[in-house]
Design a protein around this nucleic acid. Structure first.
Length: 271
DNA sequence: CAGCGCCCCTGCCCGC
DNA sequence: TGCGGGCAGGGGCGCT
């Protein structure tokens, strides 16, 4: 479900409600997520104040004085704020219960998500230490993309979806950014010229920033922490539009598979 | 190392 | 209406 805009929308939705709040309890109904949810969460977290809600790539952090809860939403995860008496559904696996009738509830039908605990600085965590730059940060620029892509034969679409290159670009926004940049998704990353790298960096930044502004993309059931859907799906130009006319040139949008993921592009506008 | 394919899991939609 | 197959917004891991 969530790419960077949806994770950031979630972060912004929950942060004002839980920052400064004290955790009372942790309820684990299903510990078998991508990795087992550590039982240490239940001993370490109650009594702690959530100092801040952070994000790195698609990982969210709940920071406390003694450690950090690291959350990944996988394909189908969502975090919602609910009241104490809201009955838990079949896929509501983890609750973090706060003082003041606030429960942060993780729902994840496919259980590809993760809830971890680290007592060290979260960016030193094994899963986070090797991540590439933030797409909206200064380090992600044309020169960086040009340099990293030299000598790479991998197609540009899976290349920009590699979190070691740049974080947060998932399957929807990879297709959208390549459309905006006019680049064929199957082109070898190493063959992109410097100007085209600049164009792609701009396209990635723009599409992600606009999606965050719109509250993310709701394809099936994404909702923010406050329960609101995103509306960026209305702005999608190629994703999910196989066979439909391109908005720019009316050529039929093509759908192909790249590494078991669907890719959408306009064969006329993207070269 | 780069590059690929395989999974983890449930739900839903489509075609027969 | 029932059922099997394929696909879904991620990404770590193991193999070549």
């Amino acid at each position: 479900m969530p790419e960077l805009p949806e994770v950031e929308t979630t972060r912004r939705g929950i942060a004002p409600y839980i920052e400064g709040k004290t955790v009372q309890d942790v309820v684990l109904r299903q510990r078998r997520l991508r990795w087992p949810v550590p039982a240490r969460l239940q001993s370490a977290l109650p009594g702690q104040v959530v100092i801040s809600v952070g994000r790195r790539g698609k990982y969210l952090f709940l920071c406390t004085a003694v450690g950090t809860v690291v959350i990944h939403l996988g394909m189908s995860g969502s975090l919602r704020l609910v009241g104490h008496d809201e009955p838990a559904g079949k896929h509501d696996h983890v609750d973090i219960v706060f003082a003041g009738d606030i429960v942060l509830r993780l729902r994840d039908p496919r259980r590809f998500g993760a809830v971890l605990w680290t007592s060290r600085p979260p960016l030193q965590h094994k899963l986070l230490a090797a991540l590439g730059p933030e797409p909206l940060g200064e380090a992600f620029d044309a020169e960086y993309l040009y340099r990293r892509s030299r000598g790479r034969r991998l197609a540009i679409k899976p290349f920009i979806m590699d979190s070691k290159i740049v974080v947060g670009v998932g399957n929807i926004y990879a297709s959208e950014a390549l459309f905006r940049a006019g680049i064929r998704p199957g082109m070898a990353a190493g063959r992109l010229s410097r100007p085209r790298c600049a164009c792609l960096v701009s396209a990635i930044r723009e599409v992600l920033a606009e999606a965050i502004e719109a509250g993310g993309t709701t394809l099936r059931d994404f909702v923010s922490g406050e329960g609101r859907p995103g509306y960026f799906q209305q702005a999608l130009q190629v994703y999910g539009r196989g066979g439909e006319p391109c908005e720019v040139c009316a050529t039929a949008i093509r759908q192909v598979m790249q590494g078991q993921r669907a890719t959408y592009y306009c064969p006329q506008c993207q070269r």
